[in-house]
Write a protein that binds this DNA or RNA. Structure first.
Lengths: 352, 352
DNA sequence: CTGAAAGCGCTAACAG
DNA sequence: CTGTTAGCGCTTTCAG
């Protein structure tokens, strides 16, 4: 027992941390030299460097990350928050799109030397004021999201979607919803579907608003009647209910575009329950990142919102802003990708 | 232009941070008083306190989180890492179980005042040495996971599953896989299924090993032949392929237990493709957190591994260790929950 | 009731 | 080539 125990009552006194000064004392060198040896800076002989490294390792020295951050003036830490999700602050990972965006953001950030903390959806100040965040990614903000203003007011750069465009300190990456919907609808029309219906959730995200507007515009251009069903929120339950409602009342559409993220096999099953064959009676396109779409029969045509590409573009923008002070351009547009599969191909029309 | 601009070349010089000393100067008080006023400590008149708060707000003062952390000796930051996932360091959020565990861990941590950083699955030192982590949650470590040893060697407490039991500084929360499998198999037997088959992934997590062993023991006790199919990895593709393989060769089982997480509607569809009716020809139980199980017809019986309960127990243990130095008990067992639905009820046997 | 001063652990000027 | 010194921004004894 050579170490003084501070609090006799505590079951496990925290192991005495080895500090830089301890290594300095042990090697008979100064803090400076040890620091330089360990970080690879300065001009030291390789012999000294090696001896220091060896001693440090033997003593179990671990640099204190907080002290380094204070010195460096930044923590290389970013926040990640979803604007709003289904009224539940933590359910956002249940959406395959958001899960992928989250994972890809964390991945790209780590590659660039930044760690990412997960914040609750619809977060208020309380959760992030105590954190040394260099920047925050706000995924799918709702219109005029308060968190964006709060962050900007705190001097924290925000990376989000197009809805933050124009505010200083705010940068955006987005997908082109209008082009995406046109591509889907044109594809369906090409396959002979003249009365496509749209299933959209009531959530007020940028993509949903734009998608709905694009659908309406497309119908208007062709003098077609709109057919929109709203699912009461995100998740499979509401979407299936909305689907059933549509199928039991009124004229059947000849194609279905699901903008609301739902499980493709579940959608197929719901359609089958109503005696509908896909693609025989109804063509189907889902806006979804759900990989089960590949494994159903028929495989389901999906529109990918490219969460990985979005995340990469966003983090790269962030690094450029944080490290080179680049503020132009403020935004990037990422193209979506339509993966045409059997569910949206008229059986009589062979695939291109 | 009263503020001196440091680097004329930089497009946006970082806005001059307001520090504690600035507020002190402005109010004509000392740093001490301002600090006490703002943190609510010390014995100050309410008048002073209010005046300081007002000035601080007016000046846009935000305390520097890093400096506070350095002073406090801890960062209230924890790491979260999955032992290994499908060979892909970032795909883990695609598993509904892991996604829920991740979300619930972050949620409970935030409630307790800790922020959680996401680390890549199978992470090495490089990703976390620069972070001031007070503790790390290691979900589903593989056998003798190196990261656990590395963290413990660095003096960072680890919260994981039973496989870390016995190592000082390591704490665990786990579900009782054996009891879970017995409950499933007994339930199936009760419903008249005498030849249950098991579909398990090849991943070497604690739960999978234990589940497989429990299945074998259960079969052995009854003198039943085992029927195990291994899916080549996590994800829906491998599971569906494994299923098809099982269905095309040899005698059909009369019940199926999917320990490998797969989409319930997708599994149902695969079975239907082979002309099998659930539950008529085959009873089905999925170990899964996927909510689509509720919306299929028949609804699918699931065994929940209770990710929320596991996360809560783990984080509460962590807080107790970090803040009260409690080291006992080292582990907690959380019961699983079998949700019996139509897919595992013989049509002739009415539900209890 | 308030303020001066001492650090938390580290890195980077600047001397020697 | 190496060491002394001065902080990064904050909280907290401890005097006044």
């Amino acid at each position: 027992m050579t170490e003084p125990s501070r609090r006799p009552g505590q079951p496990s006194p925290p192991p005495v941390r080895v500090r830089l000064v301890d290594v300095a004392r042990e090697t008979g060198l100064s803090k400076t030299t040890v620091s330089a040896a360990l970080t690879g800076t300065g001009r030291l002989s390789e012999a000294v460097r090696e001896r220091v490294r060896e001693t440090a390792r033997a003593m179990g020295y671990r640099p204190n990350a907080t002290a380094r951050q204070l010195r460096a003036g930044r923590a290389r830490l970013i926040g990640y928050v979803v604007g709003e999700y289904a009224g539940e602050p933590w359910a956002f990972l249940e959406s395959p799109y958001v899960a992928r965006l989250t994972g890809a953001t964390a991945a790209t950030a780590i590659e660039r030397g930044y760690a990412m903390v997960l914040l609750p959806a619809g977060s208020l100040q309380n959760e992030w004021v105590e954190l040394p965040l260099d920047a925050v990614v706000v995924a799918d903000p709702v219109a005029d999201d308060r968190i964006v203003d709060d962050l900007l007011a705190a001097g924290i750069p925000v990376f989000s979607d197009r809805s933050v465009a124009g505010r200083p300190g705010a940068y955006w990456v987005d997908v082109d919803a209008e082009a995406a919907l046109r591509e889907i609808l044109d594809h369906l029309a090409e396959q002979g579907a003249g009365r496509p219906a749209l299933v959209a959730p009531v959530t007020d995200t940028r993509f949903n608003r734009d998608a709905l507007a694009a659908y309406r515009a497309w119908c208007a251009e062709r003098g077609l009647a709109e057919r929109v069903v709203r699912a009461e929120g995100a998740g499979n339950g509401p979407v299936v209910r909305a689907l059933e409602e549509m199928l039991t009342q009124g004229e059947l559409p000849d194609a279905l575009v699901l903008v609301a993220e739902a499980s493709p096999p579940l959608v197929l099953e719901a359609l089958r329950r109503h005696g509908l064959d896909v693609p025989g009676d109804l063509l189907l396109v889902c806006v979804s990142e759900d990989v089960t779409a590949l494994h159903t029969s028929p495989a389901v045509t999906t529109l990918s919102l490219r969460p990985r590409a979005v995340a990469q573009a966003g983090v790269e923008r962030m690094v450029a802003v944080l490290e080179q002070g680049m503020t132009e351009p403020a935004g990037t547009l990422v193209p979506t990708r339509l993966q045409v599969r059997a569910s949206s191909l008229r059986p009589s029309v062979p695939p291109a």
